[in-house]
Amino acid sequence: MSLTIRARNLTRHYGRTHALDGVDLDVPSGRIVGLIGPNGAGKTTALKAILGLTSFKGELEVLGLNPSRQRDRLMQDVCFIADVAVLPRWARVWQVIDMTEKLHPRFSRERCMYYLKNTKIQHKQKVKTLSKGMVVQLHLALVMAIDAKLLVLDEPTLGLDILFRKRFYSNLLNEYFDEQRTILITTHQVEEVEHILTDLMFIKDGQLILNSTMDDVHERYVEVMAKPDRVEEARALGPLHERVLFGRHIFLFDRTDLGSLGELGEIHRPSVADLFVALMGDEYDNGLAGEAAA
């Protein structure tokens, strides 16, 4: 299995802040990886390092290339969409398509037209007259028309309506993704991507707190909705996180003996969002969960 991304001790400091603090990373090909973290956790810095847009310390190889020195060669096989639409505002739609076609050897005009067919985007329109959602649609159409090995999406569906978001993820999964490709997604809308991810990473203060496949995550973490009389017992087992829903206490455990947990209450598979809150520490909580996660 060849590695798409390989990082060892990846570090990037901005003054005193550690945007990335010794991150080790192995992403094989054919995966859909979700990189999830709070604002300022180092997500964008990590993506920028992978895309050759920032300098870094440590080792980093993307598709066997050094991103900061060989960005132009790397971009033949890597596509990315930044967190907000960054298409040149002065250009017309047909000019953007034309430039991408001329400058990108793996771009297919037919595929791009196919994705644009169902949108309201006019070819003569200037990018600056498009709505925010339309710019994202155009950018996604451009990127999905490129036959790339790694697709990096930084908040790809920010500002899009729910219909388009659904269609985008289903296109991504059904028409774009295959064994040869890797997709790296960061997003705040975790619930939208969690069922398409194969791998999950949580990043906080420049460090990966979780880095495993979804299968492992499902095996490792369980959520127990404790029976009212077993709450103290469950708490004594040292859960990662505790929350209260409709008066019922819900505990999140890391690899505890499932047999004994079953007696405490109903067992669920935690959602990524709940897991995120548990592992990251809920900053709006009274410190209870934060201590548990640390």
């Binding site: 895309l51 050759g52 847009l53 960005r71 132009d72 060669r73 790397l74 971009m75 033949q76 890597v78 596509c79 990315f80 930044a82 907000v84 960054v86 298409l87 040149p88 505002r89 430039m99 991408t100 400058l103 990108h104 050897p105 950018h139 990127v143």
Partner: peptide, 16 residues
């Protein structure tokens, strides 16, 4: 205007 992120997503070297 941040469109540099689009230009840098194309396989064009900075010298070019």
């Amino acid at each position: 205007d941040r469109s540099i992120l689009f230009w840098k997503s194309l396989p064009v070297s900075d010298h070019m």
